[in-house]
């Protein structure tokens, strides 16, 4: 199970990375939107976690692009933006889950488990 994380703060990125690695996931880290887009195409992760405010491409753009794929990859958006309008915008673009910062790692892993298990069924 490969998970791609795009987050521009190295410490937060690392914290999430370590937590998820401990749970047995393979992690791909990116610090900006451009790198994320390239790695999504080349490495084909099974799930994507993106921050909204990223250099080059915003997280929302990544959501939009990913959801246009033939086999859309599930995406979790993590952002400091908590207001309803942004959540709705992300959901409208096709985000599978929206987590606002500050967040609980346990909640994140729960969402990951839910999304990856339901993804497996229709295939």
């Amino acid at each position: 199970m490969k998970i791609l994380i795009a987050e521009d703060d190295s410490l937060i990125l690392k914290t999430i990375e370590l937590c998820l690695k401990r749970d047995g996931f393979e992690i791909i880290c990116c610090m900006d939107g451009l790198d994320a887009m390239e790695k999504i195409e080349s490495l084909q992760p099974d799930l994507i976690i993106v921050d909204i405010m990223l250099p080059y491409f915003s997280g929302l753009e990544i959501v939009g692009k990913v959801k246009q794929f033939k086999n859309p990859i599930p995406v979790i958006v993590i952002s400091a933006m908590g207001q309803q309008s942004v959540v709705e915008e992300a959901m409208k673009l096709g985000a599978d889950e929206y987590i606002s910062k500050p967040f609980n790692i346990a909640a994140l892993t729960a969402h990951i488990k839910r999304l990856t298990s339901t993804e497996a069924i229709p295939a």
Binding site: G33, I52, M53, P55, Y56, F57, S58, E61, M81, Q83, V86
Partner: peptide
Amino acid sequence: RSLLSIYYN
């Protein structure tokens, strides 16, 4: 494209 990547609510 780079102007669009400025994030502001």
